[in-house]
Structures are given as C-alpha cells and as structure tokens.
Nucleic acid binder design. Structure first.
Length: 497
RNA sequence: GGUCGGAUGGCCGAGUGGCUAGGCUCAGCUCUGCAAAAGCUGCUACAGCGGUUCGAAUCCGCUUUCGACCUCCA
C-alpha cells in the first residue's frame, strides 16, 4: 500500500498515516445540526472528507466512515434567551421537533446527493444513542472527573488539566479560559467556568427530554460524538475530521471526555478543513451571510449572480487545498464553472479516443511527460490530499487529449499504453476520487431527435452555402440555450445550457 | 484583550530555499463560410522594510493589513 501523509492538527505536522488495523481505516466526521437548512458552509467538510474517504479506499483500505446527525443535545445548551432552538422553531412552524429534524435531515441528504458525496457507512443520530451517552457520563463520574449539580452533570476541567494537556488541540491555555467572561446557562452552578456540560437538566417546557440517573434532561453537545465514535469505531480510532471551528470547544472536549472514559486519547489523526468565507467574512448564522444550498443551486440569493451547479461548487472547493480558507465570489465560481466543464469534456473525449495501436510512441518526449503527469497524481493526493495539484496535472493532460481530437497532436504520439493510462487517470482521479460528475442533464431522446432534425436542415443549408439559414438555426438555438458546435470531422455536437 | 493563521500576477488559487504550478479573463495567431470549440503564443507575481544565505515567495525580525478561534457554528 502506498504511503499516505496527512496533516495532523493535534501535532501540527504532516505524519505518515499508519492505521490501527492494517488494511482498515476508521473515519469519523462531525455531521450537521439539523435545526436548519444546510448551507454552503456544510459543503466544504463533507466534500473534503468524501474525497478523503474515496482516496483511502483507492489506496486499498476498507473504510468505515461514520458521520453523525446532531438532532438533540446542544441546541439546548445555549444562553438563557436562546432557548431550545428545536422547541422554538417547532412552535413557529407548528411541527413536532422530530418532524422538523426529519425535514432538515432529508434536505441535508438531498444536498449531499447533489454534491455526489457518498453515504457514510453509518450515520448515527444523537437521539438514537442516549443510553450510550448516559453510560459514558456515568463512567466519567465514577472516575471522578464529572460532578452533578441540580440534575445537570459537568466535566471537571481543572482536575483533568492536572494530568492531561487540555487545550493542546486548539492551542489554548486553561488559565485564559478561566478568565472568560461569557454568560452561559448554568454558569453559577459550575465549579469552574471552563467546565462543560455532559448532561443538562431539562426545564419543564422542554419537549426533548430523557430520563437519566440525574433526572429528566438531555445530553450536552460534545458527549454524542464521543459516545458514537467509540461505539462504531472503537475507543481509539484512526481519523477524526471536521471544520476548524469545531476544534474548540467541541473536539477539545471530546478528547477530554474520551481520555477519561477510556483511559487514553481517542483519535490518532485529527483533520480539520478550513472555512468558506464570503467577501472575506466567515459564513455563519451569526454573520447573516448564509447561502443555503437550495439558494446556491437556484441562484435565488442577493449575493448570487446566477445559479451554480453542485458540481461547480464541488470542483471549486477541490481547486483549493482543504486547509486554506476559500473565499466565495461569483467571479471565482464562474471561472470554476468553465474550468470544470473543460476538464470534464476532455474526460468525455478521451474515453472515446481510439488509438492506432503503435506500442512505441511517435513523440517519446510527450509520452514520457504524459506518463509523469499521470503518475504524479498519486503523489499529490498522498501528500495531504492536494487536490489542487491533481487538478493542475489533469489540465496538463487536457490539451493533449483535445489536440489528438483536433488534429494538432498525432494520434500515435502516445503509445497505446500511455493513452490507456490517461483514460485511467481521468477516471480514477476526476471521477472516482474527486467525485466529479457530468454537469449536463442527461440528454433526453426526444430533444435529441428534434435537434437532429434541425441539425440536418442546417447541414443541407450549409451545403448549398445558404449561410443565412444555417446561421439563423444556430443563432435561434443559441437563444434557446442550445449551443451548436461544428466539429472538424463535419459532425455537429451541441451543449444545453 | 488573548491565541492562532494569512497577505502570491486583472481575478481565483498551488507552492517552504535554487527548477514555467494550474485555472479564469485578456490580446495575437492557426483552423473555420462565419461563429463556437480546440490548439499555439503572449501577459511571469509573491504586502512593506531590514536580516540570514552563493541564492528567499519560501527562513528570521519589525511594520502595515486581513481573517479565524476564544459563544452555537462546517
């Protein structure tokens, strides 16, 4: 198996990936909170880790990919006035909490499908794992690192920090945390401001509630990921992924809880994707600049100049390294749209390209260069998933492919084996690993036959040198969003906008 | 305020000491009835100042500036 290096946020350096069990890889990614519609920001981590998963599989690992759905818990943890988001919105929409959770879960799944993100192996919900969470909290209490107050349970950070490097992942110093002035619900009953809730006592009006050894309540946010990841991947697992904004407090707390509950750190490699920004500002509910996925795909948003195909968004995300911030703009996405289209068309083209059969390339230099470009893709991916460089190499190959079709490159310039390698490289990296798909709706047969009638009429007109007619057909079709292309060999192809 | 990370050509973005990243845009050319597409060519940048080095976008220092996290967040 080829070596894979990835950047471990915990140690802040690139490390070789050594799985716990040879041949197997366990991957946990924090999923969405389904109290609202999925937005552009969600696209980044799930596309990023979709590619991680696909690449691990490509390398030969059997991957178990667990991604949770947060449908309870930390909605309710917030300040006094923030109330329970699920309850609140449910009243407004006159929906049952679980009905709303279901609705947004479905929408999330729909978005993931459009992005061509593969389903996780297991998609556990927080509400489905209350028992596991309670068990874990009991263990932590028994070990003396959590305490109960008025039906709520808090994790004792101060005690934890005596023995363990609390704050290492997020680069934080506990003393600073203790001085924080934030006003959190239940702040006065905590021993220490930095302590976080494992279990919250539910006020009477709270709908989502479960029985526990400490009375009726609901789990804190962080405990769900710890309980579910250890259940499905083990007390120690390979890779934990998520957005950078989750490093603190979420992932830091996960580490603390699991370390106490299981006696050792839970994760070997932490991976964090960077944020998407809009006009230089992070997109988030608090900033009021959220673009929902449905708005992105329809173009129905003040910031958007047009609708963007899910594959354009996916491609755009992959042209940037996952640890860099990615600034959104119409200009950038429109550039990505052209680029993605060109690359995909080259792929479609190379699939159909036939080779004269010579085993010795007519152009040895080009042949060698092409081989290098193809083989480098694996090196780039294995160096912390550098999709940007892979895409650059595919763009080196595109002119060669187009050149063979267009006659600028001799058909036998490459050896038969090299042409096969090019085909395989596009299939493997563009389609299988980066998960790109065609952006055109599959053409339906009726449209096809209607167009072929028009194309034939136009061909006749051209033969008669009746260019007025042929241009009229082409122009009218263009107005209708169908672009005709006269190919070199006399055939006509078309694309639908 | 604390912690951390950026500042790359018209735009987006790779890149950690020497080798053209790439894409998009733009201009010219080839092909073409014309277009489109495609190919070729051109546009060659690393915030500023200083330092280390034979050599720096890349390392160090300072300055300016932007952002992230510190509160739910992907």
């Amino acid at each position: 198996m080829p070596k894979l290096f990835l950047y471990n946020s915990y140690t802040r350096q690139k490390e070789e990936f050594i799985p716990i069990t040879p041949g197997y890889a366990g991957l946990y990614v924090c999923g969405p909170t389904v109290s609202g519609e999925s937005h552009l920001g969600h696209a980044r981590p799930y596309i990023t880790f979709d590619v991680v998963k696909r690449y691990l599989r490509h390398l030969g690992y059997k991957v178990r990919y667990v991604r949770n759905i947060t449908d309870a818990g930390h909605f309710e943890e917030e300040g006094r006035e923030a109330i329970d988001k699920v309850n609140e919105k449910a009243k407004l929409e006159k929906l049952e909490p679980m009905e709303m959770v279901q609705k947004y879960t479905n929408l999330f799944h729909h978005g993931m499908k459009l992005f061509n993100c593969e389903d996780p192996s297991i998609e556990p919900t927080a509400t489905g794992h209350i028992i596991e969470q309670i068990n874990m909290i009991e263990t932590i209490i028994a070990k003396g690192y959590a305490y109960e107050v008025n039906g709520s349970v808090y994790f004792d950070i101060t005690r934890y920090a005596e023995l363990y490097p609390y704050g290492k992942l997020s680069g934080r110093v506990l003393e600073d945390q203790l001085e924080t002035t934030r006003e959190l619900d239940g702040q006065e009953e905590k021993r220490n401001k930095a302590d976080f809730a494992l279990w919250k006592s539910a006020p009477p009006e709270h709908i989502m509630r479960w029985k526990s050894p400490w009375g009726e309540g609901f789990p804190g946010w962080h405990i769900e990921c710890s309980a579910m990841s250890s259940k499905y991947l083990g007390d120690v697992f390979d890779i934990h992924g998520g957005g950078m904004d989750l490093q603190f407090p979420h992932h830091e707390s996960e580490i603390a809880q699991s370390t106490i509950a299981h006696g050792h750190a839970p994760v070997n490699y932490w991976m964090h994707n960077n944020m998407i920004t809009i006009n230089g500002k992070k997109m988030g509910k608090s900033y009021n600049n959220v673009i929902k996925l449905s708005e992105l795909f329809s173009g129905n948003h003040p910031i958007l100049e047009q609708a963007y195909h899910p594959m354009v968004v996916r491609f755009y995300i992959l042209t940037t390294h996952y640890r860099s911030t990615l600034d959104f703009s119409n200009e950038a996405l429109q550039a990505a749209e052209r680029a993605a289209r060109r690359l995909w068309e080259a792929y479609e083209l190379v699939k159909k390209l036939s080779h004269p059969g010579n085993e010795t390339p007519a152009d040895a230099n080009l042949d060698a260069q092409v081989n290098t470009w193809c083989r480098e893709c694996e090196d780039f991916m294995s160096d912390d998933f550098n999709t940007a460089k892979v895409i650059a190499n595919l763009f080196f190959l595109a002119p060669v492919i187009n050149g063979i079709k267009g006659g600028q490159v001799a058909p036998g310039a490459l050896s038969a084996a090299t042409l096969e390698l090019v085909k395989d490289t596009f299939k493997t990296y563009l389609e299988d690993i980066m998960g790109m798909q065609p952006m055109q709706a599959s053409q339906n047969n009726k449209l096809d036959s209607v167009l072929s009638v028009l194309i034939d009429i136009r061909k006749d007109a051209k033969k008669r040198k009746d260019f007025a007619t042929s241009d009229q057909i082409r122009n009218k079709l263009a107005e209708a969003g169908v672009l005709l292309k006269d190919e070199k060999d006399g055939s006509v192809s078309y694309t639908v906008e």
